[in-house]
Nucleic acid binder design. Structure first.
Lengths: 210, 210
DNA sequence: TTTGGTATCACATTTTCGTGTTAAGTAATC
DNA sequence: GATTACTTAACACGAAAATGTGATACCAAA
């Protein structure tokens, strides 16, 4: 069992110290640096190159933890980041994951579970509570269901819209579907009416749920 | 602790029977139905209305487990579905989640963890292994990073492209950005050249990473 | 100082798109 | 048997987009 080096970015002194003690007091873990703001972390972490960085969301100064992760992750893609926060809202979760966090756990997590999560993220997992996971899964399910306005389209119209979305010219669509260009025009017209749009781009945007 | 009713859809007789025994032999769980194919499950589950349905991927007959989930989830949004499979590939995971599965666990999971996962998914969580979660998280990170070809665009060009993507006419873009329509034309031309496209829709598709 | 990249504007031409109107054949519904 | 919805098609017109060519100005790097 190799030793996992950990950096902590957390502005609350008590929490920061408690986590440092926990990590340094556990076999197989070493805290190599603690920071109370994003700017210092951004400056020092490149020197320390920890395996895992624990990141708080709210930090004093202009930069929050997510921005800090985004910058570091770009430079050091192999470094693992884990959000450690009190927030459970969708926005913050998705932002953190997009920025490059692999784990997302709440501060109320027990010390034992925290250590386990650190090891987990280091070994290629994505530790997160089952509730957090449900938020992430819900995102997929929401994405999957298309705009209900599209249901009003006939199957032929959907076919045409799909061709439109791929950027084909009318004449290309006509030849792809073996119909006249005038018929394409007609279908497009009907599609626009049903979707209440006046241009191809707007129609495609609705098609992709934007 | 209320009793969780469970249905099992799994074609392998041994596995199906073993799970049924496990569930019926555990306090707080009851197996209310087992099925060896999707068609029968689709027909019977509406009568049983279990809290949780465990679903295998490969099933005999025309329908697989994902299609089965998709149909049932549309009818019974409150029913919880958990994939129980041997597959760990991204495609199957994402398909299952989009279809409406809330949990995704592997067949090698221990009996104790399986029971825990069933309770978890019933209580609003999304049980999945840390490795599975990483796949899902990776999807977010991939989505977040834009097409590298866009980096070749100047900031002004990105601004124009963003306006294009919103469906504005050239003259609207011109007035939004306080420039001449001829300048818009020129920028659009340069954007198309850099992105190697010949139409607005293709450019927008690249902008959105399609 | 020159060169290269960026942003700006102009004119001309061709192609494509969006809209209006009309209408025939088919399939499903009532 | 009439009605309704869908698919197909044609013609015309103006608007918008795409293409080609050229030009000026600014700024920063070579």
């Amino acid at each position: 069992m190799d030793i996992i080096s950990v950096a902590i970015v957390e502005d609350n002194h008590d929490i920061r110290t408690a986590m440092e003690l926990l990590i340094n007091g556990s076999d197989g873990y070493a805290c190599v640096g603690t920071f109370n703001n994003a700017e210092t972390a951004l400056e020092q972490i490149p020197n320390l190159l920890p395996n895992v960085a624990l990141m708080d969301f709210n930090l004093p100064g202009g930069m929050n933890g997510i921005e800090c992760i985004a910058r570091l992750k770009t430079e050091y893609p192999d470094m693992q980041f884990m959000m450690l926060t009190v927030y459970e809202d969708d926005d913050k979760i998705f932002q953190a994951l997009e920025a490059g966090a692999s784990g997302y756990i709440l501060k109320k997590t027990s010390p034992g579970e925290l250590l386990e999560a650190i090891r987990d993220v280091h070994e290629g997992g994505s530790p997160m509570s089952s509730q957090i996971a449900r938020r992430v899964v819900a995102y997929f399910q929401k994405q999957a269901k298309p705009n209900p306005a599209l249901e009003a389209l006939t199957s032929r119209e959907k076919e045409i819209l799909d061709q439109l979305s791929k950027g084909f010219l009318y004449k290309e669509i006509a030849s792809n579907l073996y119909i006249s260009i005038e018929t394409v025009r007609r279908h497009v017209h009907n599609i626009y009416e049903k979707l209440h749009v006046r241009s191809r781009t707007d129609a495609v945007n609705k098609y992709y749920n934007r």
